[in-house]
Design a protein around this nucleic acid. Structure first.
Lengths: 155, 155
DNA sequence: CTATTTTCCTACTATACTACTAGGAATTAA
DNA sequence: TTAATTCCTAGTAGTATAGTAGGAAAATAG
């Protein structure tokens, strides 16, 4: 269950682009890369994916750069993850319901279904606007306020 | 956010072992492998990890095999994932709170914290006993009964 | 005591993925 | 025309995933 560097970078990049767009300006790859300490050429590839999926628009030439193609409240974290990394939760590369669990292990399917549902509830419910404001949906705030939410679990 | 073959196999194996233990008998690697269609030698490595972590006991020789070392209700899915794959949610290999998100991206940290909290809520709350009975905690049942929980999301 | 069945242990392999890097072509603005 | 930008193709090193192979150690049944 790892969150890749690519997804983390993508999310940070989209937030930086959102900030620029709010000021009616464009932001370049180099600017994002240096602000967020992301390898520039690596970031380039990420921005290409976001553009091809219609999350951002791009303009070339001097004073070119990127802007958001949608309203910040209409871009969910889940969207970005799916664009960059594919499905939110895949078991051995398959969707949970595609695997056959026969006999006593039948309900193992439910474990992965519930896992996916839970990820959806969080990630579909956080938008770029929420990240900008820090003002999250109640369901998300509840998670953040849980005891030890910000602590690593003992092995 | 992929669930590895290893974790999926491990969970299935533990369930099969739980079934055997309930009948006061041992089950061999070969038996599990053939029942659940898991490569035998690959499964061997998985069972070694589970044994070293104290989830199962092993006995050698003819009529040897594995049994659960704990009660099924005391083994959570989260435990198995941590044994096999490491932390439930790691961002670029780090725990969410270890990464510095400065300036406007500050709240990106909260996204990953909430993601981890949400995974914990599901995976700490499903035990092997629950998988055997199919009778899950209310919080988990709620997730399973959500609309489209068993359907893939459109890209 | 021997044959057999099992776990246990070390090592190896092929493939894919992750996280990058390099070089230059196309576009646009000053 | 120059410089700044995105766009496009093609790499590469390292790590992780999903296995395989071969045999040693232990236990049981005969």
């Amino acid at each position: 269950m790892k969150i890749s560097a690519k997804v983390d970078y993508a999310l940070q990049a989209v937030v930086e682009i959102a900030v620029a767009t709010k000021k009616d300006s464009l932001i370049s790859t180099e600017e994002i890369a240096s602000r967020r300490d992301i390898p520039e050429k690596f970031l380039e590839g990420i921005l290409t994916l976001l553009r091809k999926s219609g999350v951002i628009n791009s303009y070339r030439g001097p004073s070119g750069g990127y802007e958001l193609a949608k309203k910040p409240q209409d871009i969910a974290v889940a969207d970005i993850i799916r664009i960059i990394d594919g499905p939110l939760a895949a078991v051995r590369g398959f969707a949970p319901e595609e695997i056959e669990y026969a006999g006593p292990v039948k309900h193992v399917a439910d474990v992965w279904i519930a896992t996916r549902a839970s990820l959806r509830n969080v990630l579909e419910n956080i938008s770029i606007a929420d990240i900008l404001s820090g003002d999250f949906d109640v369901s998300v705030s509840k998670l953040l306020n849980e005891k030890d939410a910000r602590k690593r679990r003992k092995a």
